[in-house]
């Protein structure tokens, strides 16, 4: 019989790999944030499971406390990341970084800078 901790630890390791792949391959910034979160929860699972291999009792409370802290900090970082993505999209109208387009032989659309300037000028509160 395989212990739960072993299975979920391996699952966590697989999630880290999967998340890394998504983080590199996906250019959309929001999808990168999703991949970043998947890497994060994979690390938590791996960490928590290695604190649960001892069959005496439940998962190590110190590991649990650190993971709870980690989950909260991950949300804070994700919220800041979403804020950055939205601010970037507001200025450029793009959802991926310009170097991604260059690296992948797709030039930025012409006329974009004009539009972003218009948005700023048109703003009611300005």
């Amino acid at each position: 019989m395989i212990a739960s901790a072993t299975l979920f630890g391996l699952c966590g390791a697989a999630l880290i790999g999967l998340g890394l792949y998504g983080f590199v391959v996906q250019a959309h910034l929001l999808r990168r944030l999703i991949a970043f979160n998947i890497i994060g929860s994979g690390i938590f699972l791996l960490f928590g499971a290695s604190g649960a291999r001892d069959q005496l009792a439940s998962t190590d409370p110190v590991a649990q406390a650190l993971i709870i802290t980690g989950i909260v900090v991950a949300l804070a970082a994700t919220a800041f990341g979403v804020g950055l993505v939205l601010a970037f999209a507001k200025v450029t109208g793009q959802t991926h970084l310009p170097e991604e387009s260059d690296a992948r032989q797709r030039p930025l659309k012409a006329g974009l800078p004009d539009r972003s300037v218009q948005t700023i000028v048109k703003d009611p509160a300005g």
Partner: peptide, 11 residues
């Protein structure tokens, strides 16, 4: 399943 109920609630 890992009996980490506090973490489960937070997650």
């Amino acid at each position: 399943r890992l009996e980490a109920i506090d973490v489960a609630l937070t997650e």
